[in-house]
Design a protein around this nucleic acid. Structure first.
Lengths: 204, 204
DNA sequence: GCGAAAACTTGCAGAGTCCGCAAAACTGCT
DNA sequence: AGCAGTTTTGCGGACTCTGCAAGTTTTCGC
């Protein structure tokens, strides 16, 4: 599958990955404010000018991993059986992508805290998530026989699912609940599938 | 309601509004790329340095009107009867905020096209919408007896509603459908309230 | 193999953003 | 009028981002 790519392509992909990884690592370690393009480029062994051939902003590089994640998820979504209900496919794909190990948890928390500490990174994160949402919508449109240029359905379900996961993560990181992330995501999907009925006024 | 504010406060608000309006107008007229902080400041009759006392980036000023819109909507949401179903309140508030006049339509289209033409403005727009979503979630939490720090419900419904409107506008501006915006928003809410059932495979 | 052609990297220059700091100007109150 | 608290402004400096042109590296056909 990943065959048939020349040396050139592989080198480009490697450079891109090295830049994204360096940007992300430095942002987590030093805090976004203290990361310069110069430092990222140095860590990836290219010139600062080259950095800007790959990413149009520092923030874009920092959140590049989200786009990668989105690409993997879209692939997996397309690999689900065509007769599976779409909600099931979405939920399965998202839940399976969660890393349940303690290190996975720490990494995710560090990521989210780094992002949330800086408004311009938040904006880039949302932008990346929106790109993911659009890809999902297209995949779903193809599968459900709807048209991403005309119909609301694929966009709404893709957005609802993406937002379900984001909100679950946000609440989970906030730490006011000790429920596992998987469970939160599961509940979010259940609520959405039920049409978000108004809860009765006693608290759980 | 707007009483009890000194001259000072009013002047600040006026400066902020002037800057936001100038930024937005120039962005629509000239295209985002050709708007400099210097030009915005000049149009609002303050120094460039003062601009940055009000907004931390050019993009933030350009999309400031979204935050204003969000504030008005949140107020109206809180003014709805407390026993109205939340979905009805949300739908009513959003639908009533739409401007159905031809000029309103042109303005909205110009706005959205300006935003969509520039990635960094898209990111700021999403950021502003996310702020709106959070405010809505808090208002809904208060009204539904849920807790915005613990419960998924208020965030999910606020996000679903906000996204419904955004998606409707995006499709509407795309122009591949000639259905009125109100109708699209209405359909989006209906789909969400029904739990986004999978459409059968024949196209409408 | 070899030599273009195409693609990638780099340095440089220039426009612009954004922020900290301290002086100057202004407002509200007595 | 005069003081205290705020706001505006200019300046300096670090940094981002882009266009351009020259220098390298990879690819491809012969």
């Amino acid at each position: 599958m990943t065959a048939e790519v020349g040396l050139r392509e592989r080198k480009k992909a490697a450079t891109r990955a090295a830049l994204a990884a360096a940007a992300n690592r430095l942002a987590v370690e030093l805090g976004v404010e203290h990361v310069t393009v110069e430092a990222i480029a140095a860590a990836a062994d290219v010139s600062p000018r080259t950095f800007h051939n790959y990413f149009s902003s520092r923030e874009e590089a920092i959140v590049a991993s989200i786009i990668d994640w989105a690409e993997r998820l879209t692939d997996e979504l397309q690999r689900r059986p065509a007769d599976e209900p779409i909600w099931d496919s979405l939920q399965a794909v998202f839940v399976e992508s969660l890393d349940d190990s303690p290190e996975g948890h720490s990494r995710l928390i560090a990521q989210l805290e780094m992002v949330m500490a800086n408004p311009s990174v938040i904006a880039s994160q949302l932008s990346a998530l929106d790109t993911m949402r659009r890809r999902f919508a297209e995949a779903i449109a193809a599968r459900s026989g709807t048209d991403a240029n005309r119909d609301l359905y694929p966009h709404l379900i893709a957005g609802a699912a993406a937002h379900a996961v984001k909100t679950s993560m946000d609440l989970w990181v906030l730490g006011r609940t000790d429920r596992p992330l998987r469970e939160l995501v599961g509940e979010a999907f259940a609520l959405l599938r039920a049409g978000l009925p108004q809860p009765d006024r006693r608290r759980s």
